[in-house]
């Protein structure tokens, strides 16, 4: 979700896990440059952070057992978290906009998707997102 326009930039659905990266694949098809991105603890992995461009600032809360092993981007992200924690958290908590967006969608369009086939589930979701 774009924080300025409150529009969804990319979207992906999966029957297994949200980590399947369909949203990232979608993002590549849209002409958009990410200046910064905020993600929850579920994505708190070096490999995931490395998927973003070098210029993209990633705001993420490290997991309990997080290490510095991984890419330079991951190390830089962790350094920023430690050195300027207040500013970092201030940016990170803008993430609540996503939660609010999902909540509004569900209230407006319902908590369920009345489709059986996986492709139709995806398209129905895409339409809601649009």
């Amino acid at each position: 979700m774009d924080l300025k326009t409150k529009m969804y930039i990319a979207f992906g659905s999966s029957m297994k896990s949200e980590k399947e990266d369909r949203a990232m694949m979608f993002l590549k098809t849209v002409d958009m440059k990410l200046k910064s991105v905020r993600l929850d603890k579920y994505y708190s992995e070096s490999s995931y952070v490395s998927r973003f461009d070098k210029d993209t600032a990633v705001y993420i809360i490290p997991k309990k057992d997080a290490t510095l092993n991984g890419s330079q981007k991951w190390k830089d992200t962790m350094r920023e978290f430690v050195t300027d924690t207040y500013q970092y958290l201030k940016e990170y908590y803008k993430r609540e906009n996503s939660e609010a967006g999902f909540s509004a969608d569900k209230k407006l369009f319902g908590w369920e998707i009345a489709q059986r086939r996986e492709d139709r589930v995806d398209r129905a979701q895409l339409t809601i997102e649009l």
């Binding site: 979700m1 924080l3 300025k4 949200e18 958009m32 990410l34 991105v37 929850d40 996503s98 999902f102």
Partner: peptide
């Protein structure tokens, strides 16, 4: 929205 400050969740 060419450049974006984004947030993501599932």
């Amino acid at each position: 929205a060419r450049e974006s400050d984004a947030t993501g969740d599932g």
